[in-house]
Structure formats: structure tokens, C-alpha cells
Design a binder for these strands. Sequence first.
DNA 1: ATGCACAACCCAAGAAAGTC
DNA 2: GACTTTCTTGGGTTGTGCAT
Length: 362
Amino acid sequence: MNKSDICAMLSGEVDPLILVKWFQKVYFPEIVKRFNQEKIRGKMALYSGETIPTNERNLSDVRTRMGLLIEFELAALSNNLFDELELDEYFWTYVTANRFPDLEIRRRDGERTVRIEVKCLQATAEEKSANFDTLRKDIDPNTDLLVVCLWEWENGDGKQEGRRAPRLEKIYVFNAMALAQLRDTYWLNTPPKNVGDGWQGYDLRDAITCKEGVYSKEQHNYGKLMRLWTKDFPYLPKKTLLLSHTEATYLAFRKEVVEVGLRTIALAQLPCLSPGEEVRRLKDPTLGNVVYMCGPVAYAQWESGEIEEFMKIHALRVFARLSSKYHTTIFVWKEGKAQKVSDVKKPKSLLEQIMVLNLLDD
DNA sequence: ATGCACAACCCAAGAAAGTC
DNA sequence: GACTTTCTTGGGTTGTGCAT
């Protein structure tokens, strides 16, 4: 990535598909690398055992705040990069008004070119419900991007005992208009059953829902990132290259996000159950299963296939099946069979549950 | 006093899967 | 095939920090 590449991309006159791909494949990977340097992460870390709330409500507040800090840092790192390259034709700005988008890239003369809406998701959050509810009238199809930052707490480099800092797993980039088209096609075609004699739709400012004929402003569900679109939805928008690319990126994004959460939970908990054992990862794309195993315990996202058979083959004593929101069903190998023993709602209580049940003893 | 954005959680109801 | 259980979907709610 050099100065002239960047300048060419930021002109605001690049084909939207090329722009999205460049940000996804070239630009943001560099920013992710820079963000994950200890020096940068350390600016928003928890030092020597400092704690954050564990109850869900207040944990959400912390996640909101982390999202804001990450968003800020993205722009700061970008401006640093421009300085290094002695690129002074463009600079990143923060939009202070409470309106779409969050960040705007401007030419030296102040004219804005590319605009960026940032969403942040913590991998292990049970319900990732950032929403993209900007109406299409407010989106510029050529210059506006929606950027999703997937992050997680991770231990530092060991120089500071007990330090935990956010680490960016990946940044996903979407053309905002194409994603909005998918969102609206899906939303308008899946109204609730109780609209009565009314309709679900839009007024000048907001998405509007209807319940038994009574209209009201939609309440933060429209555009929730994890429920924006489904595979094979019989949709109407004109299938352009950009739209197909957006759909494919979206579906991959949604899958990966849930998988990264599983990986984080598995890597944090499995070694506690079988100290000294190595964690192995197994992926079966045909069945859609992802499994982390360590000693006689497995944590899995299980789409299809026989759990009993799997436990037998791998000589497992405990098999925890995590849903997309990490609700977990625990199976134990008993009397030559896989037996369901309990359900756990929260990943934070999963480890304890396995230990309390003393499942590892016969 | 009112309202908004933010990212997330709660939970009822419907859909799918399992059991008899 | 009817009934039960489990899983997913999606409508609704939350506190903070601010602005109006």
C-alpha cells in the first residue's frame, strides 16, 4: 500500500465494488495490524487484574464504550499512517453530530469523499445486536461504507502481569447501500403477523412498525446486524456484482463472528478442564460442525451429525454443544451412551457447571 | 423534561426436532 | 401422527452520556 494507491481510492470516484474490496483486503488489514500492537491496545487495557462488571446489563455498557474507543482509534491510526506516508491530500474526521456516519474522510480543502459507519462487536457477546438502521435516502451509494470491527479481550504480552486489552480479530467492510438493500428487502418481506390492517414501512425519518393497525416507531430491531438477511431468501433487488459480493460477505461474516466467539470461549475454558493437554480444532464444512477438543472434553458448534458417534470416535467424556448465542447443552458419556445432562444459558457459567457436576469423574 | 445513539440482554411465540 | 421439548426468531427493553 503506497501513497498513490490510497489517494486513488479516496477520491470518492472509484467503483464501489473496487472500493469495498480494497478496504477489506488492503487497507483495514494494515489498520488491524497496527491496532493490535501492544502500545496501542495498552491505551484501552485493564491493568493488573482491574475488573469490569460481569452482570449483563453493565457489561453491555462497557461494550458500548469499547466500541466508541475502537472507532476513535481507527481514525487516529489512519491519520498516523497518512502522516508516515507524507500523505496530506486527505485526512480522517470524526462526525460530532449524532447522525450517520461516524467517520468521514476529507480532502485538504474540507470536501468529504469516503464516509464510514463503524460497528463494533465483541466476539463472546451472547447477543450481538448492533444495528444498521440508516435509511437509504441518507446513504451515498458510491462513497459510504459500513465497517464492522470484531474484537475480544486478550491477555497482553506478559510484560505487565494480568493485563487484558482488546484485540481486533477482523474488520469487515460493506458497501452501505448494498447492505441496506438486502436489509430492506428482507425486512419489508418479513412483516410480523399481527400488523392488522396496517403495513410495515418507513416515514421520513424512521422505520415504522404496525401492531393490530396501530403504527409506532420501530424499536431498534430493524437492521440488527445478525438478523439482516438469510441465505436463499427469495429477494427482489437487482442482482448486481456488488450485491452478490455484499451478500456473500455478509453470510461469511455472520458465520465467522459466531465461530470466533466459540473459539474464544473454548480456548479460555478447555485448558482449565484438562491442564497440560493441547486444544485441537476440527472443522467439518460438509456437516457445518466446528469442534474444539482438549483431553476428554469438547466444545462445539454442531449443525448436523450424530453426537454419540462423534463422542465414541474421539473417546470423549463431555460434549458441550453451543448455540449461536452460546446457550449450551452438555452431554456426558455414560453407560456407553451420550446422555444429555444439563443446559447452561451463559458461557461464563459453563466451566463452573462442568466442574460442579464433577462430570470428569466417573 | 425529553429524546437520541449506542451495543446488548430478555423472553414470548413460532418453528423444528425428538419421542412416544 | 400427536404430543413434547428444544432452538430460533424477532419484538421489546435497558442505563449512560450526552444534546436539545
